[in-house]
């Protein structure tokens, strides 16, 4: 089966539908599928629900899909970096479902593993636990959280082979594997597609079974908070 596509638009062809649920990898602007986001903007698909830890920044990453009002609802843990997001949210144009970061990651992982729900201590006794089933195990309280089953996953990896085996780089891995796992279809963008056999099978971070379409491209990889130390301090 051919998984390698020539462009982000080609790789998304036939996969986009108004009102769909998309799971996106990335943490802040690190490891986000920037090329696929651009192609989704171009496609004009709308009323999207997007499960992603963050919502990009103004004019970059998922922020672009907010600028064009293509997103109806976000499922996120932290959205503080985006003024347009706040404007749409406060004016009631955009729905927001806050998820604790670990709950969001585990909901994606669970969805990818066919687990419709799981119990966690996280959020018990807080607003997040309101309206959710509570169960006591060994004297401790847990709340029921549901797995996320996305229509489409969009992720970014460092390298892929043509069978979809993925290797990530440093902290750009973050939400990408669980996001990839929870989608009916997963499209991955990578910096380099390498020949089959050139990745060490023991060093594959996400097996190709989770990845259906792949594109290679140039990434801007914007830095959100550039922090450095002076050489004299060393």
């Amino acid at each position: 089966m051919k998984k390698v596509y020539g462009s982000a638009a080609e790789a998304l062809d036939g996969l986009l539908e108004d009102g769909m649920l998309i799971a996106a990898g990335g943490f802040g602007l690190c490891g986000i599928p920037e090329l696929l986001i651009d192609a989704i903007v171009e496609s004009g698909v709308k009323d999207l629900t997007v499960a992603s830890n963050n919502a990009g920044v103004d004019g970059f990453g998922l922020g672009k899909l907010l600028d064009t009002r293509q997103i109806k609802k976000m499922m996120s843990s932290y959205v503080g970096e985006n003024a347009e997001f706040m404007r749409q949210y406060l004016s009631g144009e955009l729905e927001l479902e806050f998820n604790p970061q670990g709950t969001l990651a585990e909901r994606m992982r669970a969805g990818g593993c066919g687990i419709p729900g799981f119990y966690t201590k996280t959020g018990y006794g807080t607003q997040i636990g309101e309206g959710k089933e509570v169960k006591v195990f060994n004297g401790e309280h847990y709340i029921l959280e549901e797995g996320i089953f996305a229509d489409l996953s969009i992720v970014k990896a460092w390298k892929a082979d043509d069978t979809g085996n993925l290797v990530f780089r440093k902290t750009a891995r973050n939400f990408n594997p669980p996001a990839a796992m929870c989608g009916k279809v997963c499209v991955a963008e990578v910096e380099e597609i390498v020949p089959r056999g050139s990745l060490d099978p023991d060093h594959i971070h996400l097996p190709g079974i989770y990845v259906h379409r792949i594109i290679q491209g140039e990434h801007e990889k914007r830095i959100e908070q550039r922090t450095v130390r002076k050489r004299e301090e060393a």
């Binding site: 690190c30 440093k170 902290t171 990889k221 830095i223 908070q225 922090t227 450095v228 002076k230």
Partner: peptide, 15 residues
């Protein structure tokens, strides 16, 4: 990192 050695793929939880 030292100036000039920042890596966009290597950030902490504060980004």
């Amino acid at each position: 990192p030292f100036e000039g050695e920042e890596d966009p793929d290597l950030i902490n939880a504060g980004k």
